[in-house]
């Protein structure tokens, strides 16, 4: 049987190292997923800070894919020049401002999606399952499923394991 290909998208690296580190101490995440489906698993962790995930218990047997590019995507460079971050900080002080932020190009989920588009993992390949570790990674995971409905997309590692158990 071919191995199950899984992509874990991590936007918030600090939260991931802390939470995954405490959750997968004895067995790595790849092993936990493999146990849920009783099948070999190839796990790729996509992150902008690969060094944070190297040699961690949870990343055992996983491929760590760096999304860090030589140059940031054009939109991000433009936003930087325009001082968009300052505007975002100002807007975040009010509910309506936070709503505008959530719909703007400075929203973390859009920044993460642009970064991933610029440096995708396994560019020509297919993933059976994409896991958004945090909210900022949801848009990217969701797009995988919209592009190819055979790619399942879930939010959270625990939900991913439950999903695999239910669907195998």
């Amino acid at each position: 049987m071919t191995p199950l290909t899984v992509l874990l998208l991590v936007a918030n690296d600090s939260e991931a190292t802390e939470r995954l580190g405490s959750q997968y101490q004895s067995a790595g995440l790849a092993e936990a997923i493999a146990a849920a489906v009783n099948r070999n698993v190839v796990l790729t962790i996509a992150t902008r800070n690969p060094e944070k995930h190297a040699n961690k218990s949870y990343s055992r047997d996983a491929i760590i894919h760096s999304m860090r590019a030589e140059r940031a995507p054009l939109v991000d460079r433009l936003l930087l020049v325009m001082g968009a971050e300052k505007l975002r900080t100002t807007l975040s002080t009010s509910p309506i401002g936070r709503l505008i932020n959530s719909l703007s190009a400075t929203d973390p989920s859009r920044i993460f999606a642009r970064a991933y588009r610029q440096k995708p993992a396994n560019a020509s390949g297919h993933f059976d399952l994409v896991i958004a570790f945090d909210t900022a990674a949801i848009r990217t995971a969701w797009s995988f499923n919209k592009r190819d409905s055979t790619t399942a997309a879930v939010f959270g590692d625990a939900a991913a394991i439950a999903y695999l158990r239910d669907n195998n």
């Binding site: 909210t135 969701w142 499923n145 939010f155 939900a159 999903y163």
Partner: peptide, 20 residues
């Protein structure tokens, strides 16, 4: 809902607006 295939375009565009 954790299965993202069930998330609507609006929810992905702005979870905040969707929740509101």
């Amino acid at each position: 809902e954790t299965n993202l295939s069930r998330w609507t375009r609006l929810r992905v565009a702005s979870p905040l607006l969707w929740s509101f």
